[in-house]
């Protein structure tokens, strides 16, 4: 080091440039875990939410009734457990628990798994609420024309529920992006851990964490704008084009 930094800003610059590799790697890992964990978490949330919302009707065959009931109970416990414990503890338990039973899971996979389970537990309620918010007439309209209950769900109810819960999904993604920082406890080289490493050499933790604070901020800020844009797009056009070729001139 030819010239030692003399003030905070020079230190920040030095750390940011000297360890840029670490920060870039950390950013990528943070994004990978957030995306993978959130997307898989949504899928889990949808499945759990749909099962939670499904009703057992007397005409169902017995095995189906038993299966549905079992799943409902399991999912209820799952949701409760994951909502009532901190993610940092979940991370430790999942990571070391899986290793204990002899599976050599790597920290990133464990991180994705924890994020997924956490997201799923929260999204299940959101999905259920989203489904409930869709007028029952939509489903009945589909059933009445001979669509199967599953078909009505997939083609009619879910697309509408999905639209309603997009804001919540965007929210969840941003939360996850920030929550990945707790995964440093299981050795995931995401942004937080990288900052710790980078700051450690010179004992300049404050400056190092300022660097990742800026990165987190920029990421969240950008994604927030992107989601708002998508929402706007999804809201649909206010106008429609009259199909003039089918107009009749007798009005």
């Amino acid at each position: 080091m030819e010239n030692t930094p003399t003030n905070m800003f020079e230190w920040i610059w030095l750390i940011a440039t000297q360890y840029s590799q670490l920060f870039i790697e950390g950013t990528i890992i943070t994004l990978i875990i957030s995306f993978a964990g959130t997307i898989t978490g949504f899928i889990v949330g949808f499945i759990v939410g749909i099962v939670e919302d499904s009703k057992i009707t007397p005409s169902d065959p017995l095995p189906q009734k038993i299966l549905t009931r079992c799943f409902k109970i399991i999912f209820k416990i799952y949701i409760e457990v994951f909502r009532d414990t901190p993610m940092i503890v979940q991370a430790m338990i999942v990571y070391f628990g899986i290793r204990q039973i002899g599976i050599q899971i790597d920290p990133i996979s464990a991180g994705i798994l924890v994020t997924m389970l956490n997201t799923g537990a929260y999204m299940a309620e959101t999905v259920r609420g989203g489904i409930k918010s869709i007028d029952i007439g939509q489903r009945e309209g589909a059933l009445a024309m001979g669509m199967s209950p599953i078909g009505a769900m997939i083609h009619i109810v879910l697309p509408q529920a999905f639209k309603n819960i997009i804001p919540e999904m965007a929210n969840m993604f941003l939360t996850n992006l920030k929550m990945t920082s707790v995964l440093n406890v299981i050795g995931v080289k995401e942004l937080f851990l990288q900052a710790k490493t980078a700051g450690g050499t010179y004992y300049k933790y404050f400056e190092s964490y300022l660097v990742i604070a800026a990165i987190y901020f920029v990421l969240c800020f950008l994604f927030n704008r992107i989601f708002l844009l998508i929402e706007k797009k999804m809201a649909g056009k206010k106008d429609y084009v009259l199909a003039v070729e089918y107009m009749e001139n007798n009005e």
């Binding site: 007028d135 007439g137 939509q138 009945e140 309209g141 589909a142 059933l143 009445a144 024309m145 001979g146 009619i156 697309p159 509408q160 639209k163």
Partner: peptide, 16 residues
């Protein structure tokens, strides 16, 4: 049901 259609008071057109 595919052969016995239904028209509802509240239309129930698919909003999506």
């Amino acid at each position: 049901r595919s052969r016995v259609g239904m028209v509802f008071q509240s239309f129930n057109l698919f909003n999506n």
